[in-house]
């Protein structure tokens, strides 16, 4: 009787569209945090769908640390152009002046200055009262307690002990001037759901997700791609060409590649289904210390 059979992905899609529409209806100045990766790709697709034939009623915001893969930046600009979207890019000018780099300052300082601080600057400058992001609860342990509509105080801080109870699908979207909400439409999606959705809708993704020969160095147990010559080689290191792809994308010196022959989305999904390690395993940022994601989130990291 209905157009086609209803699947688990349809359920998640409908839920995410409902959340996006609530965010647009209940806030004065929402913004979509666009980080170029697969989750952002799905999120953007859902936003286009939720408000079609209108354009999404919010701009896209990208926090550029200046250490993203070059392919990510060109994919970002191409996507904004293709859909005619209002893309706003912010880099922490302070950090830029100080020359903060993940290589010389380490992932903690780099993430704090170029991501967390930069995000706060951009949110304050835009006076955004809702920041919509693509984070999922299955990504990391401290995210498992995150609300879909997650309250932030005037300093953008998350207090895990003072979260609002979230009942049925009735969000409490009330905030005072200066306070804000983080909104996570993909909360209930798993990594597999995201890839299956990309596959089903044939969504273009950054080619870095697909395996191809890339120049990498082995460092601290990870395979780091040398995206430009800012990555100076340490004694004993040498660049090798290897067939690799990325499960998550961030700043290139902090993103570990995995060896893979999956050069199509189908093969990536198949590899996922056989995967034995988590997607964040290749991310240096989560491994600084136990509980580190939780601490970054408290400070306002997305």
């Amino acid at each position: 009787m209905h157009d086609r059979s209803w699947t688990h992905l349809d359920d998640l899609e409908s839920e995410a569209i409902h959340i996006l529409r609530e965010a647009a209806a209940c806030f004065e100045r929402p913004v979509l945090m666009y980080s170029i990766g697969k989750d952002s790709t799905v999120l953007l697709h859902l936003a286009l769908k939720a408000f079609w034939p209108a354009k999404p009623p919010f701009p896209l915001l990208h926090i550029d640390t200046k250490w993203k893969f070059r392919e990510m930046i060109s994919f970002r600009d191409e996507t904004a152009r293709k859909f005619g979207l209002d893309l706003r890019v912010h880099t922490n000018p302070e950090g830029l002046r100080q020359g903060i780099s993940p290589i010389t300052h380490g992932s903690r300082v780099h993430t704090d200055v170029m991501k967390t601080q930069a995000l706060r600057q951009a949110l304050e400058a835009g006076r955004y009262d809702a920041a919509i992001g693509g984070a999922r609860r299955d990504e990391e342990r401290s995210r498992a307690k995150e609300r879909i509509f997650s309250f932030r105080d005037r300093s953008h801080r998350w207090d895990p002990k003072q979260q609002r109870p979230e009942l049925w699908n009735i969000p409490n979207t009330r905030v005072h001037e200066g306070e804000s909400m983080r909104v996570f439409p993909l909360s209930n999606w798993t990594e597999l759901d995201v890839w299956l959705y990309v596959l089903q809708h044939r969504l273009p993704v950054v080619p870095l997700y697909l395996a191809q020969p890339r120049p990498v160095v082995e460092r601290d147990g990870l395979l780091i791609m040398r995206d430009d010559d800012r990555l100076a080689l340490r004694p004993g290191e040498h660049v090798q060409e290897r067939m690799v792809r990325f499960r998550t994308l961030g700043c290139y010196p902090l993103s570990g590649a995995v060896e893979s022959r999956a050069d199509t989305i189908e093969k990536v999904v198949e590899e996922m289904l056989r995967a034995r390690t988590s997607e964040r395993q290749g991310r240096l940022i989560d491994h600084d210390q136990s509980g580190s994601m939780e601490e970054k989130k408290r400070e306002g990291y997305f």
């Binding site: 401290s142 498992a144 136990s290």
Partner: peptide
């Protein structure tokens, strides 16, 4: 495996509703 927050692991208790996904 499931006590996610640092305070929870330290105190050996669970504070807030946690969402888990498995298939």
């Amino acid at each position: 495996l499931v006590d996610g927050l640092k305070a929870e692991r330290e105190q050996g208790i669970t504070i807030d509703v946690a969402w888990r996904y498995f298939a």
